Amino acid sequence: MKEILVEQVQQRILVGETVHLLDVREVDEVQQGHIPGILHIPLGLLEFRMHELDKNTPYIIVCRSGARSGRATAFLQEQGYDVTNMVGGMLAWQDAMEQEEVQ
């Protein structure tokens, strides 16, 4: 399984690189704070909504600590998606977060 550190994700965003972030936390967790521009699909709905993802797009998978995103990464990788787990999750995130409704 591919992994990326929070600091590496933050650096990519800082330099203006397009990153596709998939947050697999629950709705209430995401509403409390999320990385701007995320796509939100709770882990429990992922198998039913994975058709919303593009197999040609690399995604960085995000959760609270890295455990759920690890499960999501393994599942999506088995389905043929290009996915990377963000180690440390939102607990390690130090940059700006939004607190609003997300998709």
Score class of each variant (00 low, 15 high):
77 Q>S: 14
74 A>L: 04
61 I>W: 02
58 P>W: 02
83 V>Y: 01
78 E>H: 02
51 H>S: 14
87 V>K: 14
84 T>N: 02
23 D>L: 06
89 G>H: 13
78 E>Y: 00
53 L>H: 09
48 F>G: 04
23 D>I: 00
54 D>K: 10
20 H>S: 09
36 P>W: 14
34 H>G: 05
23 D>M: 07
70 G>C: 06
31 Q>H: 10
86 M>H: 09
29 E>D: 15
42 P>K: 11
66 G>I: 07
22 L>R: 00
32 Q>A: 15
57 T>F: 01
77 Q>G: 06
20 H>F: 06
28 D>Y: 06
59 Y>D: 03
51 H>F: 14
52 E>F: 05
36 P>V: 14
36 P>H: 15
51 H>E: 14
58 P>Y: 03
68 R>F: 04
58 P>G: 02
91 L>I: 05
83 V>E: 03
80 G>L: 07
39 L>F: 03
40 H>C: 09
48 F>N: 11
74 A>D: 05
40 H>A: 14
67 A>P: 00
73 T>C: 07
68 R>G: 10
60 I>T: 08
28 D>V: 08
24 V>K: 13
28 D>G: 02
65 S>A: 10
76 L>T: 08
57 T>K: 04
50 M>N: 14
90 M>G: 11
42 P>Y: 05
51 H>A: 15
81 Y>D: 12
57 T>M: 02
90 M>W: 09
84 T>R: 01
43 L>Q: 08
31 Q>R: 15
37 G>A: 15
53 L>F: 11
52 E>V: 04
51 H>R: 14
35 I>S: 10
34 H>V: 05
53 L>A: 11
80 G>V: 04
66 G>M: 11
49 R>P: 03
72 A>K: 07
46 L>I: 07
73 T>G: 01
91 L>P: 02
52 E>M: 08
71 R>I: 03
50 M>R: 15
82 D>W: 01
44 G>F: 09
36 P>K: 15
74 A>G: 01
59 Y>L: 04
20 H>D: 03
48 F>E: 13
75 F>P: 02
29 E>I: 06
86 M>I: 09
45 L>K: 11
59 Y>C: 03
80 G>N: 07
91 L>V: 04
51 H>D: 14
68 R>Q: 12
29 E>W: 08
56 N>D: 06
72 A>I: 05
59 Y>M: 04
44 G>D: 12
74 A>K: 08
48 F>P: 02
81 Y>E: 12
68 R>H: 08
47 E>R: 13
79 Q>R: 08
83 V>F: 01
62 V>P: 04
54 D>F: 02
67 A>H: 05
88 G>I: 13
82 D>G: 00
74 A>R: 10
67 A>R: 11
20 H>E: 04
